[in-house]
Computed example of a mutant assay.
Amino acid sequence: MRRIVRLMGLLLASSAMLGAEEVMKDIEYGNAGGESLCLDARVPPGEGPFPIAIIIHGGGWGSGDKTQDIDALFEPLTKAGFAWFSINYRLAPKHPWPACFDDTRMAIGWVKAHARQYKGDPQRIALIGYSAGGQLALLAAIRADDSTRVQAVVGVAPAADLVADSRRRGVVSKSLQNLLILPEKLDEAAFAKIAAISPAEEVKPGLPPFLLLQGTADQSVRHEDTLAFAGKLQKAKVPCEFVSLEGAPHRISDWPKFSPDYPAKIVVWLTKVLGNG
């Protein structure tokens, strides 16, 4: 416990930013739909092998980038002794479902296959996904096979229950319209397509440990939906920890105003689950 508290203190005290030259940018992990699929990577100093974090950005499946919204995690992960990979994936509506999910799985498989080249441990991999990227991370962990299996999952305001969210809205959200090529009308056919990609519909025993972080004032992904997803995991006897950020909205860039230590909380949990060396 003292080591964990000390680690959190070091992470919070550090203010030096990583230099751009220390990040290996635009490494191609695949090619699909006529697009080169790339990721950025950072390996901490030392011999390794290091635990690995694969970071999946948000943006409603139709926007965002591997350098945006989740960049606050880069420095804490490096300083805690993690090799990390931040991925791009194909975006809707140009590339509807399952393109983004296929790319996520491809990236996980690539990282596992190339882990040793980056001083990473292929047996200690965590997925970290924000918002729509959280949906991709959760679903990838749930549907994993031997080539994509991971040992930990972090959902940051994750779109975990798309059925409950759609029922609340009463219409198909613009993001899901673009992703699934659906009209706005929320009918039985639309519900079926939405349920088919909703992580909450596929919770089962035997999944890796989950950490879920959710703002109580989030208007895009409801706090109660993420909390209910955590309840499903716990009912299936899947290890799960839930962190509420009081007053925090959906925009992760605003989270430091409400919980400046949230990156440290993620890293401390990952260190507990995967180790740091």
Rank of each mutant, 00 (worst) to 15 (best):
A72R: 15
K232D: 04
W61F: 14
V171G: 02
H95V: 03
E35F: 00
G155D: 08
P44K: 11
I55E: 05
N88V: 04
F50Y: 12
G59Q: 06
Q117V: 05
V203P: 06
R167L: 13
Q214H: 08
D69L: 05
M24D: 09
A236Q: 11
D102V: 15
G19I: 00
S253Y: 01
G247L: 03
D225A: 10
V172F: 08
H95M: 03
Y118T: 08
G81W: 00
Y118R: 04
R251D: 11
I27N: 07
T226R: 03
R6V: 00
V111W: 02
F229H: 09
D40C: 03
D69F: 04
L39T: 08
G34T: 14
A80Q: 10
T271W: 01
V221N: 08
P96C: 07
D65R: 13
L39V: 05
G59Y: 04
K265S: 05
I125T: 13
V243N: 07
A236C: 11
T216A: 08
A144N: 09
G206H: 06
A113Q: 14
A192D: 12
R169N: 07
V273D: 04
K235S: 14
I4N: 11
A13V: 03
A152E: 06
G34C: 07
P209W: 02
A230M: 08
M17I: 12
D102T: 15
Q135C: 14
L207M: 10
N178W: 08
E35L: 11
D102P: 05
F50K: 10
S63I: 02
Y118C: 06
D225L: 04
A160C: 14
A152M: 09
A160Q: 03
W84Y: 11
A141R: 09
A107D: 07
P260V: 08
G81V: 08
L176K: 13
